[in-house]
Amino acid sequence: MKFNSFVIDPSHPEYEEHVRAVKEFEEEYGEDWDSTIIEYDNDFVNLPEYVAKAAFTGNFRIVLQWPKKGNIKERIIAKGKEAGNMGLLFFAAINQQHNLMSFLLQNGADVNVLNSAGMSVGLGPNPNRGLLWGAELFEEGEPSIKEMKLALCETITSNGYVQIAKLMSSELGGRRCEIVCAPNTRGDLVGKTCVVHEYIIESNQYKVTIEFTNEVLLLGSDHLKRRDRTPQDPGYYVESENNGLNRRDFKSNEECQAFIACLSVEKEESLENDPDAKAKAEQAATDLLAELGLEDLEGPSSNASKKKEKQSAATGKKKKRGGKKKGRK
């Protein structure tokens, strides 16, 4: 299909955008893309609509049980084919459900997963949490350049989010950092982590809050280096308990890391002592969802021995249909 058959008035305000979009599509699929179908791969896990709705409305009971029915990490990163490939992290971000965001990121969610528009989910309406976990700015699937970042900050400012725009306009604003060089007489700060707030132009310093002590200081960028939160080094731990989420705080990063390492060992020992522990957990989750009347919404049980965990998703490859093409001789 040629663009000249794509009916749109050249005076339309979005004309140029439509021209660009169609040309990009034809470059990828060819000008004879009409009457093609998309082939699917098998490494995609679809997010059921009822789970997406539960995440959107804050129904943690359903959200926390569904991943336990199968491979937790695969389900944590599942995307809804009918929802623009949005996943649990997206719904948590737009609703500013910070504990749920942290729980998902601890369990393997990618803070830089892109939505259908090519934008980083971690930099949603309130990007504070995403910045701490290493979210970067993407535009149409590509890392943003400085000019693009400034343009986005202007847009955020015009929408009324002045403080967020200030954070994102500086190099380290909103980030979690490690203090690598301490001010005079404060050698005790080296190796400590902090959350960076606003950039003070006049003094060329950042206002930071030291983690665990909440001490507020002004430090230059040469005193800091990024230390994004990771599943092994989050600084705190959000755990699932009684179908809810609880945040566990610590006195230091070392204590937090030791706690997480201990959890990993306990999990391995549990599986060694009871090889059926994982299957039992999956069955318990299945039973609870069935009790809520949600089991039938995604078909039979998703236990690995009974059902394939992965579903198909588009890969961008094309395959011609047989027969004549629509509108062609």
Rank of each mutant, 00 (worst) to 15 (best):
S169L: 10
I164Y: 03
A165G: 12
M168A: 12
C177Y: 03
A151V: 02
L150G: 00
R176I: 05
E171W: 06
C177G: 02
A165S: 15
G173K: 02
S144E: 10
G160I: 02
T157R: 13
S169N: 09
S170P: 07
L152V: 07
G141E: 11
M148C: 05
V162Q: 13
S169I: 05
Q163I: 06
G160K: 06
K149Q: 11
A165I: 09
K166A: 12
T157M: 06
C177N: 05
A165W: 12
N159I: 03
A165P: 13
T157I: 01
Y161M: 06
E154N: 10
E142T: 15
T157N: 04
V162M: 10
G160C: 09
E142F: 14
M168W: 11
A165T: 08
G141D: 14
A151I: 04
A165M: 13
R175L: 04
Q163C: 04
M168N: 10
K149Y: 00
K146Y: 08
I145N: 13
P143V: 12
A165C: 12
C177S: 05
A165F: 14
T155R: 08
E171D: 14
L167K: 03
Y161G: 01
M148T: 10
F138P: 02
G160L: 09
M148R: 11
I156T: 04
S169F: 00
I145V: 14
R176G: 05
Y161T: 02
A151C: 02
C177F: 03
E142Y: 13
R175G: 06
I164C: 00
P143G: 11
G173P: 02
T155M: 08
I145D: 12
E139T: 12
R176Y: 04
E140F: 13
G141I: 11
I145W: 04
L152I: 06
S169Q: 15
E140D: 14
G174Q: 01
S169C: 09
E154W: 03
Y161W: 08
S158F: 05
